[in-house]
């Protein structure tokens, strides 16, 4: 079927273009497009599930240790996060515009829209990269690399960036230790060793309780928040990078005049991918930056 289409292509109507791109095992371009779309949606479903593990970890730790999240989230800059959101959402809009341009066969507009989308991706990476850099400087890192109090070069940056809510951290910690916030935690505090049986069945730990009153200013295990933060945003950033590569591929093909009313499936599918990357950020931003 595709050979027939190649034979006659002096005046390429959309139908002919579609026929030229028809793979041997499909009967109609529509069947091919529908298959591609279903495949893409399934793939995007697996992307959500990939992130779902991290969302799950987030939910578990936030439920068990809300004080860590309330405390640590203040070190993230909501303004910068909002800027990231703005840039990504705008690039989502230009992507949707790109799909429409591809469908209508407006090549120049398609190229512009793709360029803007790519710029949005890079903009996001730059803003977020700068955030990472700041956090790196302040040693606000994951797990073993979290030691801001000891090594922070500038003590003043340790001040939370957004305003504090009422009540001190030591109070919050006390609440936590009294079982108010972490009544069902089966996670041992730092340096105690493996979790063992659930906390509810275990007598209160006098050492930790004492150290809480002594250390006062921050909750235990803040590094958990930063671990989750870096994993979630890091995995998301990897997806942005992959998206930029895919968009560049689209750009090259757009310049080669590959897309038009008869054939725009790749733009459509990669647009869906970009939409999902946007959408995941829409969840990440409030969950990480806007905790009160």
């Amino acid at each position: 079927m595709s050979e027939n289409a190649i034979a006659t292509l002096t005046l390429a109507s959309p139908e002919e273009v579609a026929g030229r791109h028809l793979a041997h095992h499909f009967d109609t371009p529509q069947q091919q497009f529908d298959s591609g779309k279903l495949g893409m949606w399934l793939f995007l479903g697996t992307e959500f599930l990939l992130f779902s593990g991290l969302f799950c970890a987030y939910a578990v730790y936030r439920m068990l240790h809300p004080q860590i999240f309330i405390y640590a989230s203040r070190y993230l800059d909501p303004v910068s996060g909002a800027l990231c959101t703005l840039v990504l959402v705008s690039s989502g809009f230009t992507m949707a515009w790109a799909i429409r341009c591809a469908q209508l066969g407006k090549r120049t507009a398609l190229i512009i829209a793709l360029l803007l989308t790519i710029a949005g991706g890079f903009g996001f990476l730059v803003i977020h990269g700068y955030e990472y850099f700041e956090e790196y400087q302040q040693h606000l890192m994951w797990g073993t690399h979290y030691h801001p109090a000891v090594n922070a070069p500038r003590q003043q940056v340790m001040v939370p960036k957004s305003g504090a809510v009422g009540g001190s951290w030591s109070q919050l910690n006390q609440l936590g230790k009294q079982g108010y916030l972490v009544a069902h935690s089966n996670i041992a505090p730092a340096a105690i060793g493996p979790a063992g049986p659930a906390l509810a069945q275990r007598p209160a730990d006098p050492v930790t309780a004492a150290s809480v009153t002594a250390a006062a200013s921050q909750p235990h295990n803040v590094q958990i928040f930063f671990g989750i933060y870096f994993l979630m945003t890091g995995l998301h950033s990897i997806h942005v990078i992959v998206g930029i590569i895919l968009l560049t591929y689209l750009l090259v093909r757009a310049i080669r005049k590959d897309f038009g009313p008869g054939y725009y499936a790749p733009v459509d599918f990669i647009g869906l991918y970009w939409g999902v990357v946007d959408m995941i950020w829409m969840f990440l931003f409030p969950l990480l930056y806007l905790i009160h």
Binding site: V60, W142, A195, I224, G227, L231
Partner: peptide, 19 residues
């Protein structure tokens, strides 16, 4: 990430939960 970066989500020594 746990082994390479020491993230600690599954490591009780860092406040994580092996279960």
């Amino acid at each position: 990430a746990e082994r390479v970066m020491g993230v600690g989500i599954f490591n009780s020594a860092l406040g994580g939960d092996p279960v």
